Amino acid sequence: MLEQTVEIINKLGLHARAAGKLIETTSKFSSDITIEKEGRNVDGKSIMAMMMLAAAKGTTIKIKVNGEDEEKAMNEIIALINNRFGEDE
């Protein structure tokens, strides 16, 4: 199991489009993916769960990935977040 903490840095936070891109990425992997914010864990493959986190810019989340493709999954998720979900700033 891999765990990594990352800060949401895009201007609008984990809004609908960003959450959609995150789910598009996480759904490609067979590993179990969980996102944690302030002690609350949600399914990293559920768009409704992502939206309910209400992770604004500056929010720190913990990504937990467990499975055979966990390393590749973690790398792609972190890259997506650090790339501001492809949004212009």
Rank of each mutant, 00 (worst) to 15 (best):
M51P: 00
R40D: 12
I8P: 00
I78F: 07
A16T: 15
E24Q: 13
G13W: 12
A55S: 09
L80M: 13
D43N: 02
A19M: 14
T34Y: 10
M74A: 09
M51D: 13
I77Q: 07
E38Y: 13
L53T: 02
Q4M: 07
A18K: 01
V65Y: 01
E24Y: 15
T25I: 10
K28E: 11
V65H: 03
I81V: 08
T59D: 09
L14P: 00
G39V: 04
A55R: 15
T59H: 03
V65R: 08
H15I: 14
N75F: 10
I8W: 00
M1E: 06
K57Q: 04
T59A: 12
I81K: 02
A18V: 06
I63S: 13
G20Y: 03
S27T: 08
L53M: 06
T60W: 08
E36G: 01
E38A: 08
A49L: 15
L2N: 09
A18Y: 09
K57Y: 04
Q4A: 14
E71D: 07
T25H: 06
A18M: 03
D88P: 11
G44S: 06
N66T: 08
I9V: 11
D88I: 14
A16K: 14
A19L: 10
M52H: 05
I8Y: 01
M48W: 06
I35L: 03
V65C: 04
E38Q: 09
D69T: 14
N83P: 07
G67E: 03
F29I: 04
I9G: 12
G39R: 05
D69F: 07
L2H: 04
A73C: 12
E89V: 05
A49P: 14
R40L: 10
K62M: 15
A56V: 04
K64F: 10
G44F: 00
K21G: 13
S30G: 07
S27V: 07
K72E: 08
K72D: 08
T60Q: 11
A79H: 12
I47V: 05
A73Y: 09
V42Y: 06
S46T: 06
G13I: 14
V42P: 01
A54F: 08
K21N: 09
I23A: 01
S30C: 05
K28S: 13
A56R: 08
M52L: 06
T26A: 05
R17F: 11
A79D: 07
K62R: 06
G13H: 11
E89K: 04
I77N: 01
G13P: 02
L53N: 03
S46M: 07
R17D: 13
S31C: 11
K64N: 11
A18N: 12
N10R: 06
T26P: 02
D43W: 15
R84P: 00
M50Y: 15
A56S: 12
M50P: 03
K11Q: 09
V65I: 12
E70Y: 15
L22V: 02
E71F: 01
D88T: 05
M52R: 13
V6H: 09
A16M: 03
V65E: 09
I77H: 15
E68H: 03
R17M: 08
I81Q: 10
E38M: 11
T25S: 10
L53F: 05
E36N: 10
A19T: 08
N66A: 10
M50T: 11
S31R: 01
M52C: 15
I9S: 04
S46P: 02
A16R: 06
D32M: 13
I35H: 02
F85M: 04
I35S: 04
L2I: 03
E36D: 13
S31F: 04
E3V: 15
